[in-house]
């Protein structure tokens, strides 16, 4: 924790951090881009999960729905990485010495693994989750996916309320 505090102090003293801190429109703009990208990633994942539950685009094979919605997640995650990193550089203490931030990152790791697994399974073996025996497995996966993504969004909002004074 002490090392992180020291690193945060060093980061906050860099000229890039200084610019982000002092130009007032930069942080809200970065946060707006960040949330819009979260909206894209979250909705894409949830729509595929809803398709697994057969409540969205039932007339379209799961494979086609997955092909439309899951691959675009990855480039958008890159934008999230960039905007998220810039937000950390601007206010290092807000996240780097904040447990909620690490919870968000841990959940994100789980979400990435889940989504990548789902995408690979559905695209390489079409019809997976369609037969009755695998249906439950698919629904369990979809439920966990929705919960984990919601957890990421909740944690993201709570970072603002749990930062060290």
């Amino acid at each position: 924790m002490l090392a992180l505090t020291g690193f945060s102090k060093w980061l906050a003293a860099t000229s890039l951090s200084h610019t982000i801190q002092t130009v007032t429109w930069i942080i809200p703009t970065l946060q707006t881009i960040h949330i819009l990208c979260v909206a894209i990633v979250f909705s894409s994942a949830v729509l595929v999960d809803l398709r697994i539950f057969r409540v969205f685009e039932r007339d379209e094979p799961l494979r086609e729905v997955t092909r439309r919605f899951l691959p675009p997640i990855w480039p958008v995650l890159l934008i999230l990485l960039v905007t998220g990193s810039l937000l950390i550089i601007g206010e290092p203490r807000r996240s780097l010495v904040n447990t909620t931030f690490y919870l968000k990152m841990a959940l994100l790791l789980v979400a990435i693994l889940l989504t990548a697994t789902l995408q690979r399974m559905v695209l390489t073996s079409p019809g997976v989750f369609e037969d009755r025996s695998r249906q439950m497995a698919g629904r369990a996966l979809a439920t966990v996916s929705i919960l984990v993504w919601c957890g990421i969004l909740f944690a993201g909002r709570w970072i603002a309320y749990t930062q060290a004074g």
């Binding site: 949330i35 909206a39 894209i40 979250f42 949830v46 729509l47 919601c150 969004l153 909740f154 993201g156």
Partner: peptide, 10 residues
Amino acid sequence: VVAICLVVGS
């Protein structure tokens, strides 16, 4: 935030 993300994304 969760609801707005789903509104905007969908």
